[in-house]
Design a binder for these strands. Structure first.
Lengths: 118, 118
DNA sequence: CCGTACAGGGAAAAATTTTTCACTGCCTGA
DNA sequence: TCAGGCAGTGAAAAATTTTTCCCTGTACGG
C-alpha cells in the first residue's frame, strides 16, 4: 500500500468525507450498488470506463471505510455480494446533494470565463 | 496549464461538484471566505499549512468556476477582496453536509478494520 | 538605497492517484 | 485439455495534483 509522506489532517469533518468519497469511481460504485448491482462482475460490466482492477481497489477502500460490506457466499461457483452499510446509506444524502447541485450549476461552473470584467 | 490526457466525464452532476470542491484546500478556502477572511494576505495567514502559491491557484480555480468573485480596489496600496457568489453560497450546503457527516462518522470510517469477520 | 508588504506567476520537483499488464486459482462446458 | 467465467492481487507505468523555489512590480518607512 502507498505510504503517505504528507500527513492527513483528519480533524475536519469535510476531510473525512472527502476521504470516503474522493476516489474517482467511488460515487459511481456506490450508486451502482444502491441500484442493486452488487456482484463484482456486474459492477465491472456496469462501469466499463474503469478497469476491473480499479473498481476492485475502490471497493476495497469503501469496505475498509465501512461504507459497504461484503458477503461471501460459501461454495461454488464463487459468489460475492456488496451492500451498503447503514453508514453507507447515510452518505447517499451527500451524493444526491452533489448530483443535484452539479446538475443545477453545470452551465455556470463550466462557463469559460471569457469575461474579464473589472 | 496542465492539459488532460484522459477526458473528463462531465455529464454527471457529481463530477461537476467534485471538480469544484475537489482541490485539497478548496473547502477550507471557501469556509475562510465565508467567515469574512477575504483578502489574499489574510487567507495566507489563516491557512498556514498551505503555501501562498497553493492558495492562489485554488482561488483562481474557484474564480473560474464562478464560486467566488474578485474585487480589485483601484489605487494603492493594493487591495483585493474575494467574495462568494450566489452560486458559491449555494455550495455551502454541501460543505456543511460533508462536515456534519464526517464528524458523525469519523470513528466508523477511521476504524482500522481489524475484524476479519466471516 | 534596503527591507517589507501588497498581489501574483513560471517551471520543475515531489507526492499521490489511477491505470495497465500480467498473474493466481477454482470450476464448468465443449 | 482448452476457453471462459468467477474473484482478486503485485508491480510498475502513466496521469494528475500539490508543493517548493524563485521572480515580477509597485509603494511605504527609514
Amino acid at each position: 500500500m502507498y505510504e503517505r509522506k504528507i500527513p492527513e489532517d483528519l480533524e475536519c469533518g469535510v476531510t473525512i468525507t472527502a476521504k470516503v468519497l474522493g476516489g474517482k469511481w467511488k460515487p459511481c460504485i456506490i450508486d451502482s450498488i444502491r441500484r442493486g448491482i452488487q456482484r463484482p462482475s456486474e459492477l465491472h460490466q456496469d462501469i466499463t470506463e474503469a478497469s476491473p482492477r480499479v473498481i476492485n481497489m475502490q471497493l476495497r477502500e469503501l469496505l475498509d471505510h465501512g461504507i459497504i460490506d461484503k458477503k461471501i457466499y460459501p461454495g461454488l461457483p464463487l459468489k460475492v455480494e456488496y451492500n451498503l452499510t447503514p453508514v453507507g446509506e447515510g452518505i447517499l444524502f451527500i451524493i444526491d446533494a452533489m448530483d443535484k447541485w452539479g446538475e443545477e450549476n453545470r452551465d455556470h461552473v463550466l462557463q469559460v470565463t471569457e469575461e474579464t470584467a473589472g
